[in-house]
C-alpha cells in the first residue's frame, strides 16, 4: 500500500526525516511511535502527498506522490494532527463540502454524510457550528470527514492527543471497526497504550530515523524484559541503587525521578532492592511495554 526507501524531509538545514525505509501492507494498522519532533508528522504529510519529499522514493497506492498527487489523494483519508475543520461551515456542511472536493456527486455525498454522522455519533449535531463542538466531537467529525471518499487508506496523525479517556476509547472503537472493514490505517502516536491497542505493526521513530520495527509484542520481547520494577527513592540515591543492582538484574535505567529494573520476575527484583537495605518511597511492578522499548532504543522516555 505504501513503501518508502531513503525517505528524507529537510526544512532548510534541519533534517526532520533522515532517510527512512518502511513498507505498509494492505489491510493492516501501521503505527509510527515516537516523541514530539521525531518526524512522524512530516512523514505523514509526505505519505498524504501534502508535502514533497526532499529525497528518496515513496510509493503510495503504487503511485508517485510527486507526479500523481491528486490521484493518490482521491483514494486517501487524512486526519491531521490539528483538526482542520472548516470553521465557517456547520457539521453536516463540513462533510458535504469536503465530499465535493473529491468530485463525488451531491447524492452520494449526502448519503455518505448521513451514514458517517451516525458512525461518529454526531447525527444530533448536524446543524451545529463547529465552534460549539467539544474536542472529542471535533476529532470524530475530522475522522468522519476523512472517510467521506470511502478511502482504502486512512492516515491518522495523533488521533487522540488532547482527548479525555472516554473520548479516546470511543475513537479507538471506531478505528477498530474500520480495520474490520478492511481499511488500511496509518497511525502516529506518542502514546504507547494507543500503539499497543491499535497497531498490528509499528516503527519506533526518534530524531528523524527509525530505531525499531515489528509488532508491539515482538518489540517488547526483543528489546525489553518480561517485567519491570520501578523504584522511587525519597532523597537522591538513584545512582547508588543502580550501581548496587547492576549485574544482578537484566538491565537497569536511571530516569529523572525513578530507577527502572528489568528482569523476568518483578517481585524477585523488589525483594533484592529491599534486601540491599533500601526503603523506597514507592515501587511498581509491571509488564514490559512499548514505553520501555522506546527508552531502551533511544535512552529517553516517550512523553517528557
Amino acid at each position: 500500500m505504501v513503501s518508502a526507501r531513503g525517505l528524507t524531509k529537510r526544512f532548510g538545514s534541519s533534517e526532520a526525516v533522515a532517510g527512512i525505509d518502511f513498507s505498509i501492507r494492505r489491510g493492516e494498522v501501521f503505527g509510527f511511535l515516537g516523541p514530539n519532533g521525531a518526524g512522524k508528522t512530516s512523514t505523514m504529510r509526505m505519505i498524504a502527498c501534502m508535502s514533497p519529499a526532499s529525497e528518496g522514493t515513496l510509493r503510495v497506492r503504487g503511485l508517485d506522490p510527486s507526479r500523481d498527487g491528486p490521484t493518490i489523494r482521491a483514494g486517501l483519508g487524512v486526519v491531521p494532527q490539528q483538526d482542520t475543520l472548516d470553521m465557517e461551515l456547520t457539521v453536516l456542511d463540513n462533510l458535504l463540502v469536503y465530499g465535493r472536493y473529491f468530485d463525488l456527486s451531491r447524492r452520494v455525498v449526502r448519503e455518505r454524510a448521513e451514514r458517517l454522522l451516525d458512525f461518529a455519533q454526531l447525527s444530533e449535531r448536524a446543524g451545529s457550528r463547529v465552534d460549539d463542538l467539544s474536542g472529542g466531537m471535533r476529532r470524530r467529525l475530522t475522522i468522519a470527514r476523512a472517510l467521506i471518499s470511502s478511502p482504502e487508506l486512512v492516515i491518522l496523525d495523533e488521533p487522540t492527543t488532547g482527548l479525555d479517556p472516554q473520548a479516546r476509547h470511543l475513537v479507538w472503537e471506531r478505528l477498530y471497526r474500520l480495520r474490520q472493514e478492511g481499511v488500511t490505517l496509518i497511525v502516529t502516536t506518542h502514546y504507547m497504550d494507543e500503539a499497543e491497542q491499535l497497531c498490528d505493526r509499528l516503527v519506533v521513530m526518534d530524531k528523524g530515523t527509525i530505531v525499531g520495527e515489528g509488532s508491539p509484542r515482538e518489540l517488547v520481547d526483543k528489546h525489553v524484559s518480561r517485567e519491570v520494577l520501578e523504584v522511587r527513592l525519597g532523597e537522591g540515591g538513584h545512582e547508588r541503587l543502580a550501581g548496587d543492582v547492576r549485574g544482578r538484574v537484566e538491565r537497569v535505567e536511571v530516569l529523572a525521578d525513578r530507577v527502572c529494573c528489568y528482569g523476568d520476575n518483578g517481585d524477585e527484583m523488589l525483594a533484592l532492592v529491599h534486601g540491599l537495605g533500601y526503603q523506597p518511597e514507592n515501587t511498581l511492578v509491571r509488564r514490559g511495554s512499548l514505553e520501555d522499548v522506546f527508552l531502551r532504543l533511544t535512552g529517553r522516555s516517550l512523553v517528557e
Binding site: A48, R73, Q82, T84, E88, Y101, S149
Partner: peptide, 14 residues
C-alpha cells in the same frame, strides 16, 4: 486564522 486550506489540500485539490 481559519486554516481553511489545510483540510482542502488533503483532498485531490492542489
Amino acid at each position: 486564522i481559519a486554516k481553511t486550506y489545510e483540510g482542502v489540500l488533503a483532498t485531490p485539490l492542489s
